[in-house]
């Protein structure tokens, strides 16, 4: 049994220690907004925050996380989808299929926390998540809108 702090709640997770955080979140805790895409930290669909840092949860075993570390998933980013990025995503109609967007938003939220006024280069460096529908330009526009750097 491993204790994890997810979205402000401490939960007991009955899973083998080498279980990736992604699957503990999806299958033991039952939060399915965080997605499986590749299992090898390539695509970023599984991005969550661990102590505020964007982390690819598919390649992080739960044995590597302490009870004191705060995990935030897309469901915990804001109580009512009111995070400025979530609002901007809707305003600019960013999602197409939407499958990668949880990870995209979590990556963007971590970026803006660290760098509130990112340059285009900052955005392109930090936003390495894959989107097969190709919504990249609207994602970039939404981030810049929130950062107040849209021009």
């Amino acid at each position: 049994m491993v204790k994890l702090n997810v979205n402000g709640r401490t939960v007991d997770v009955d899973a083998e220690p080498d279980t990736p955080l992604l699957w503990a979140i999806r299958e033991q805790i039952g939060l399915t907004g965080t997605k499986y895409g590749c299992g090898v930290a390539q695509c970023g669909a599984c991005t969550v925050h661990v102590d505020g840092v964007a982390t690819r949860s598919c390649a992080l075993p739960i044995s590597g996380i302490t009870e004191g570390q705060k995990i935030v998933t897309i469901e915990g980013l804001s109580p009512d989808a009111s995070h400025p990025l979530q609002k901007a995503w809707l305003e600019l109609d960013v999602p197409q299929c939407g499958y990668c967007q949880s990870g995209q938003i979590m990556a963007a939220a971590a970026l803006l926390k660290e760098t509130p006024k990112p340059t285009d280069e900052d955005i392109m460096r930090e936003m390495s998540n894959i989107c097969r529908c190709g919504t990249y330009n609207r994602i970039k526009a939404a981030i810049k809108q929130v950062a107040g750097t849209a021009g």
Binding site: L31, T32, G33, T34, K35, Y36, T73, I74, E75, L77, S78, A81, Q86, W89, L90, D93, P95, G98, Y99, Q101, S102, I105
Partner: peptide, 17 residues
């Protein structure tokens, strides 16, 4: 704007998986 976008920004959208 598209219909059904809300669940795609808060994790609520249910995909097959």
């Amino acid at each position: 704007k598209r219909l059904n976008q809300g669940g795609k920004v808060n994790g609520a959208q249910v995909y097959s998986i």
